[in-house]
Amino acid sequence: MSFGPHLLLALLEGTVTAFVLALTALGLSLVFGVMRIVNVAHGEFFMLGAVLAWAFSSLVPGMPALGFLLALVGSALVVGTVAIAADRLILRRLNYAPEATIVATIGLLYIIQQVVLTVYGPNAHPVVPPINFRVVFPWFGYSGYKLVVIGASAALLGATWYTLTRTRLGLIMRATQFDRETAQSFGIPVDRVYSAVFALGAMLAAVAGVLIVPIQQAHYLMGLDPLLLSFIVVILGGLGNLRGTVMAAFVIGLSDGVISVFFSATLAKIIATLFVALVLVVRREGLFGEKAR
């Protein structure tokens, strides 16, 4: 294959990575933006989504499309419930103190990993894609499912954006983000908003996990990579800046795709990490962030 088609393939792979990453990182960024906490267990919500997708879709063998829809709804609901429980039982008691929250979510990370390991075992679980067609380019065939991933992620990103900017729920979330105490004195149930935001963030990660699992098998240790990539993206985009997060996801996703195809995936991650270091030296508020007030 000559350079042109090779680059096209790399860009396609990068676009898939970018969309899934945008979805995952958006969840992390949303939680940070509204609640001012860093959720280290975010990658485990992604992993939980993926593993549950396998569990749900194996309930209806032979019907991959139905299984996929079931997985999409089921995983999101289960992960959302886990997130609400974690918020009520742990994070709220810590009063969302930044450092204590980080330590607690690290604890949560280990607990989720161990539970998944105990229940579903150490093997990787494959999931059949819900649709099976190939887009045929003159140089290579490309999995049609990956285009579905792009479409679904774009739709979800749009829906999240719409919810945040155009609905009453979004207004309440933004009010809480802007000034928690004033929001509370205007009768906004801040506690419930926090639970909802934490659940929404976790569900975005879980859905990203469901979408990725027909491409990449479900495994109990798969959460670390999306977590670190999300961190990279969230820092580049400016902590809590949602638009910046999505833009950074594209920078990182595309470059990850290109470097992975032409060199190696490990090198791509090393470069992304060192790039963040460089950005932090030059611009502390991130690539797309605004200067702190």
Binding site: V38, E99, I102, F231, I232, I235, I270, A277, R284
Partner: peptide, 27 residues
């Protein structure tokens, strides 16, 4: 590099540098 950040960013940055180190040992 890392001490240019504080608080939460410092934790994330150190975590990521360590991960880059881990990846280097694999690379």
């Amino acid at each position: 590099v890392a001490l240019r950040t504080a608080g939460v960013s410092f934790m994330i940055v150190t975590l990521m540098f360590a991960q880059a180190g881990y990846l280097l040992t694999l690379y």
